[in-house]
Design a protein around this nucleic acid. Structure first.
Lengths: 194, 194
DNA sequence: GTGCTCATGTAAGGCGTTACATGATTAT
DNA sequence: ATAATCATGTAACGCCTTACATGAGCAC
């Protein structure tokens, strides 16, 4: 068993990476990054390559994952692949079941700008909202597409569920922006939109 | 004029603190913290005391804020109060108008847990959702109360607008949790709720 | 006189990013 | 040839937090 001091209070990102491994596949750091870009980023940010690599080292040191080098059948360099250990499986299960339910962290840059509305022209406030709306709709669409890709795999029921949540979340963000645009109009001082 | 090298690429948190000062009042670090707990935290996280103090130093060094010590009329220690400079006003206005519209940062811990649903009992998934729902409703209520406090001050029109946004945002978070609880029920394998 | 609140800071350290280094294979 | 992609890392640094230090007045 690995050193106990390496096991206390892992950051959420570690659990996210270990969580990716908990679906049972043997994955490289590179795979993990793409995987996380594909699903995690809708509700949790996707860590950088370098962080994924260092998280993997930490997880291995803690005894939660094991790795081996594999030669590629044809082409490209050897890669290191990781697999979750029984101990890791037990740890991530325990975390998912018993960790306190922390409030989500939100850093809403566009809202911060709008909060400073006294520094902007009405037209600039609109512009921020419109761009945010477009971002939200793009995310919604991508989440929806990913739900389609996941819904028939029984292993992805829960990921599919969270993707469905994400689809609704970004739809709501889009609508919330529309609502604020309407509030701005009501505030007056604006030439009506054509 | 202050050193140009101190002016490049301030983090969003600096702008948030300078933004708090842009309403024109002379405020201490302590005031700023409370102010930010009161309004910023609904859509942007509230920085710690120590960070506010160091942001203020940075802003002063950049020439965006000036400070002076004031003696308290009666009791308690002297405090240092900060005021935005003309240069700071111009800088924050420029930032609010011209910075690119970045996507919001979301780190949704509860969703990360639910994404790992294969590690949880259905009852535990419910519990996470219910707790998150309660958190969201609490935030919604507090935002609504703060809208009431702000809506009659003409200086707070835009802050009031973002608080209204926040009220709807947390209502949506609450409803999204309810929706996911319903999705869970549909998935079956659950004894129906009494 | 004990503890709470106001008030300001320093120190240490973890989290996470960008930039850089490396090198092999594949496509053009 | 060269550019792009796959793949794995290191180094440097910035952001931000927690813990700690300090000290004064006020309430009980």
């Amino acid at each position: 068993m690995a050193d106990e001091t390496n096991k206390r209070a892992l950051p959420a990102t570690s659990w996210a990476v270990l969580g990716l491994l908990s679906f049972g596949e043997e994955l490289s750091g590179y795979d993990l990054k793409k995987w996380s870009d594909w699903s995690l980023r809708f509700f949790y940010w996707s860590p950088s390559f370098s962080q994924i690599y260092s998280e993997l080292k930490r997880l291995e040191k803690a005894g939660y994952a094991s790795s081996r080098m594999v030669a590629q059948d044809t082409g490209t360099r050897d890669k290191r692949v990781y697999r979750i250990t029984d101990e890791g499986m037990a740890a991530v299960r325990k975390w998912a079941r018993e960790a306190p339910v922390d409030p989500p962290v939100l850093k809403h840059g566009p809202m911060l700008r709008l909060w400073l509305g006294h520094l902007l022209e009405p037209e600039q406030m609109r512009e921020v909202l419109v761009q945010h709306q477009e971002f939200a709709e793009g995310m919604r669409r991508r989440a929806a597409a990913d739900v389609e890709g996941a819904k028939d795999e029984s292993a992805w029921v829960y990921p599919a569920l969270t993707l469905k949540w994400a689809e609704r979340y970004y739809a709501s963000e889009r609508d919330l922006a529309a609502g604020m645009l309407a509030d701005l109009d009501e505030l007056g001082g604006l030439r009506p939109r054509p």
